[in-house]
Structures are given as structure tokens and as C-alpha cells.
Simulated assay, not measured.
Amino acid sequence: MVMDPMLICKKSRRLRGKLTHICNKEPALLKEITKGLQIGTRECQYQFRNRRWNCTTVRRSLKKILLRDTRETSFMNAIAAAGVTYAITRACTMGGLVQCSCEKMIANGNHIGKIAHRSGNRRTNIPTEGEWEWGGCGDNINYGFKKSREFMDAPYRKRSDIKTLVKLHNSDAGRLAVKNFMRTICKCHGLSGSCTVRTCWRKMPAFREVGNRLKESFDGAAKVIPGNDGHSYITEGLTIKPPERFDLIYSEDSPDFCKPNRKTGSLGTVGRQCNSTSPGVDGCEILCCGRGYDTRIVKEKINCQCRFKWCCEVSCNTCIVRKSVNSCR
């Protein structure tokens, strides 16, 4: 599904319920789902751009990664679900879907705030002083969350093997990385710019924030094993805290991704650019797996000696700079 969301719909004859309805009756929603998966893929590539596994979209590699149940798979499933939730919610706000619209809240601010607190939703930065009311065009996160779950989780709901349980958990963690961190945005109203009354609405966080949060969860992901009942999982180590809903989990150890391996989907790191001065994961020692690296000098054209001309132009010369590029052996 992450590789090709339409593949599920091609098998819709064997599907039932809401998933079949989405495939056959909601083409605009399918378009947003595809956009969401693209958003998630781009964010995955940004977060892992300097690591041995760089979230490649090479099909033969991606397929093998998704068939396993490693940390990398957990992140991909989470960021994909988050991207779909984000895209659908944004489409509702922008009027791109006839099935939904902005989030509607008809009540005074204090009442809604109390409801949010009791229900456990994290509505941060809710005003506590002065008069204010819900209004504006809030992001309809509940609709995005619901549709993401209906489409992405439906094919797996009746299964209880460890891989399915882990997949469903991580997908929900991705959605919660969007939903649990909605921001409250307010606009002031009043004479002469005063703020006697404020109108407030909820807005999704920037998707980069979602990616950063899930990357932190990836770094602290917990390994799990099947429970004795065959329908649940437990952490592998007795001293490890049970994962919460927004934590990422996995059940298989990751390969080192140093060398090409068809079985695991690893493409290796030969030819990857590295930083010879960095001690981190993008450094040549770690990224090249101790094999060493080659350095070459490349020429690059840049704009230089720019001048402002009245009015209103900027003219620049073209300069050639030389820089060294390190590549893993």
C-alpha cells in the first residue's frame, strides 16, 4: 500500500465495507491519500538523508524493507499514516473534498476547553484569560484520522499475527504525531487593534515537526515479541517500559545496510557522499562502514559579486568555486 495505494483498490472485488466504498466512490479522497504517501516519503528521505539507510524509493529495496518488521519499517509505516492523515485534513480545510469541511465548534471557548481536557485531547496554548470563542477555519483532524485508518488499516483488522499488530500500532502512532500536537491559533478583534475578543481555531503542526517527532520515536523504538495469548505483544526485555500509543515498536533487528543484500533490501553505501570531519552518522567512518572513502575536486558555478541597480534589478557575476567531495568506497 505504501508503494502503490491503488493496488488495494485493484483488489477491491475481494474487499468489503468502507474500503470498497472509498475505492469505488471517492476518487478525490484517493488522490489525497496518494499525496499523503508522497508527503510521508519525502519526509522520510529528509530524516534519513545522512544515514546508511536513506529511505530509498528504489522499488526492489523498498519492497523488501516493507516486508520486514525492523525499526526502519516502523518509521515508514508511521510516517506514511501521518502523511495520509495530514493530506486529507488539509484537503478538508482547503475545500478540496466535498465530504468534509473545516472543523466546526459551536460553543464558547471555556466550555470547549473543558471538554478537550476531559477527553484527553491535547489542545495546547488554549487562551485562559479574556473573552474568546472558537471560530475561523479549524483543521478537521478527526476526519483525516478516521479516513486514514479506514483505508490503511482495514485490510489488516482481522489478523492478529505479530507483524500485523506492530504495523497497526505504528500506523496509529504516526496519526497521533499529527493529532496530539494540534496548535491553537487566535486572531484578535477590537477597536484600534485592541484584543478585547479573540477568535481561536485548531491548526495542524508543520509536517517537519511531525517527522522530527517520529524520528525521535524511531531512535527510542522498543523491540517486542508475541504475547502468550497469540493476540498481543510484549517488550522483549523485562526491564523495558511497555510502549505507549505514540511510541514506535519493531520485532526484527535491522541489517547494517553496509553492503548490497537482496534478501534484506539493502543497497549498501558504496558511492554515497560523506562528511570527513563529522563524528556522527553522516561521517565517512560510520557511513562508509570502515571501508574508507575517495576524495575528488568538483567545480561549481555560483552567483557572486551581486549588485543592486536602481530600480529594481540585481545583477551578479558567475564565479567558479572548487570543493572536495568524499564518496564511500
Rank of each mutant, 00 (worst) to 15 (best):
W134G: 01
R13M: 02
G96F: 02
Q99I: 11
R118K: 14
C92K: 04
L97P: 06
E131R: 14
G120R: 03
L62N: 01
N140W: 03
N24M: 14
E43F: 07
Y86W: 13
V58R: 12
M105R: 12
N24H: 14
G17V: 12
C137P: 12
G40E: 01
L37I: 15
I33S: 03
E43Y: 03
K18A: 09
G95N: 06
R90I: 09
R149M: 07
G17L: 08
G17E: 04
R42S: 03
R149L: 07
H117T: 14
R118H: 15
H117W: 08
Q99S: 15
G83V: 12
C44P: 11
W132I: 06
D139P: 08
R51L: 00
G96N: 10
R90N: 13
N77V: 04
P27N: 08
I33L: 07
N121S: 09
N54Y: 12
M152A: 12
A107K: 14
N24R: 15
A87D: 03
E32A: 07
T20L: 15
G113F: 12
I79T: 05
E72M: 01
I141K: 00
L37S: 14
A91T: 11
R49P: 00
G83W: 10
L15Y: 15
N50I: 04
G109V: 06
G96C: 06
R60Y: 07
K25F: 10
T41W: 02
P27T: 10
M76A: 09
W134D: 01
G113P: 09
C44A: 15
V84M: 00
L15F: 15
R90E: 13
C55E: 02
L97K: 08
D153F: 14
T41D: 03
G95K: 05
Q45Y: 08
A91W: 09
W132T: 07
I126M: 15
S148K: 04
T57P: 00
G144N: 00
R123S: 02
Q47A: 13
F75T: 03
D153I: 11
G120C: 05
T85E: 02
C44H: 08
E150K: 01
C137M: 05
R123I: 15
T57R: 05
R52L: 00
A107P: 04
A78R: 02
T93I: 06
V98M: 03
R118F: 15
D153H: 12
N77P: 00
A116Q: 04
T89H: 03
W134F: 09
E26F: 11
A80N: 01
M152D: 00
I106R: 03
D69V: 07
